[in-house]
Design a binder for these strands. Structure first.
Lengths: 253, 253
DNA sequence: CGTTAAGTTGATCCTGCTCAAGGTCGGTGG
DNA sequence: CCACCGACCTTGAGCAGGATCAACTTAACG
């Protein structure tokens, strides 16, 4: 059985043909065999290699993407080359739905692992919702979830210490991965991140991330070495991340 | 004629009865006199005074709000009382659309001025989209716009200096207000913010915000005193904010 | 005119950045 | 099997941007 977060995905029951086969978020009504409005508009699955861009900052993008396998980062690059990671997208995510569909993207999307996606052109959205009215609401729901995650990070970066930020990021990623594998009780997983990625997501330098990780290791809270995360003391981690233990439990169950 | 940002709003043409009468984002098809699916589900207009909460962190909220007049902040409070402002909502905004409708809110919403809102219960969303399929897509579009703004702030807080962050915030607010009043060419406006609010939005202390504002004033870029913003040198401001002048122009026109 | 919220300024401290040098891992080719 | 290389991790020394603490000033409002 594959480990959570190693790039493979769980197949949920439901519409195997349609755009949203890994998550029922977009397309919860489809049953195998029944007609699906999305299926006729989506493209075939497409693969991208690590490091490839799905779309880029400042360039137009006329499709939305459904991530079927692997990890993707959304990011911004500044003039001086510094980078801010905005979001880690996991299988099931919808990417590139942008205000003013087809307009310039205000951020880029890059494959963090080898990935598989399928796409729907923006101009197909209108026809889809007229056939399947819940689709729009489900899309809104998914975008709202990403927005909530962004607010969460905003709070973390704006008001927490380096230690809290790193703990918060790793804990959230751990929980999100584990949510894809309910029932798994492994406190160890592959995170396809470098320490530089962690820095770019938390607004820190990789040098300082390294020191924070050393301290967290010294305190026997977690270990992160070469893309492998091991959580030694979940309770302490939740505490350091500044989160409510009960809230975290509600995510897991 | 009222100044931009003083809490009053422009009435756009369209459906005067429905939920979304200040913006055509949610309900672009309604024509005066024609039936409107939203109108039959929304509540009457409701007023809130400055400082009142529309909904609170950790409490359930079973409705979405359409902001008709005034300003609202979305915010998070930490255990130690520190605050992070996540978003400034202007008239036309939709608030409280949350993943898992009706569940615990992960942030609060507070009136920054006296405001007027109307609401739709979450459970009315399904019936509305079945009568008016584009509604869901429009909702998704609005949420995506907020998400993009959040990503913008994330980059600003994560990777910019204090000076850049303050400049960026004020410029963006200015542009967003002015977008509500196309044609206006006033470089002066009321922003219903304290320096503490600016600090809580940019991840700085109000003491440091004060010093940054002093420097920006000294450099004759802008003046911000007692909730009044005057932009002295728009070009320099765009430069300090680290934004592309052409991009900014595209927002204005 | 008194009260209160908000703005202002200085002195000092500390978290996290910068710069720099070395170490470790994993893959590749001989 | 080993040498090499590039990407990534690790650690130290010194610095600086912004925080903290504290005192005072100004504006708004009844």
């Amino acid at each position: 059985m594959p480990m959570p977060g190693n790039g493979t995905t769980k197949q949920l029951p439901g519409c195997e043909a349609c755009f949203a086969r890994v998550n029922r978020g977009l397309c919860g009504d489809c049953q195998p065999g029944s007609p699906c409005a999305v299926a006729s508009y989506k493209t075939a699955d497409r693969e991208y290699k690590v490091g490839q861009d799905l779309f880029s900052l400042g360039e137009p993008c006329d499709s939305i993407f459904n991530l079927l396998e692997g990890w993707v980062i959304l990011y911004n690059i500044l003039d001086d080359g510094r980078r801010q990671i905005l979001h880690f997208a996991l299988p099931g995510a919808v990417l590139g739905f942008h205000p003013g569909g087809g307009a310039m993207m205000t951020y880029g999307a890059q494959a963090l692992t080898d990935i598989v996606v399928s796409t729907i052109p923006h101009k197909a959205l209108q026809p889809i919702v007229s056939q399947q009215p819940e689709f729009g609401l489900r899309l809104a729901w998914l975008v709202a979830r990403d927005c909530t995650l962004a607010y969460d990070r905003l709070t973390s970066i704006g008001r927490h210490s380096a230690r809290e930020r790193v703990a918060h990021l790793l804990l959230k990623l751990f929980v999100r991965c584990r949510a894809q594998w309910p029932g798994s009780h492994i406190e160890e997983m592959n995170l396809p991140l470098t320490q530089e990625d962690i820095g770019d997501a938390t607004g820190l330098t990789f040098v300082h991330v390294n020191r924070v990780l050393r301290d967290l290791r010294k305190d026997r809270i977690l270990e992160f070495h070469y893309r492998r995360l091991r959580i030694l003391d979940p309770d302490k981690l939740v505490d350091v991340a500044g989160l409510d233990p009960q809230l975290v439990m509600s995510w897991i169950r």
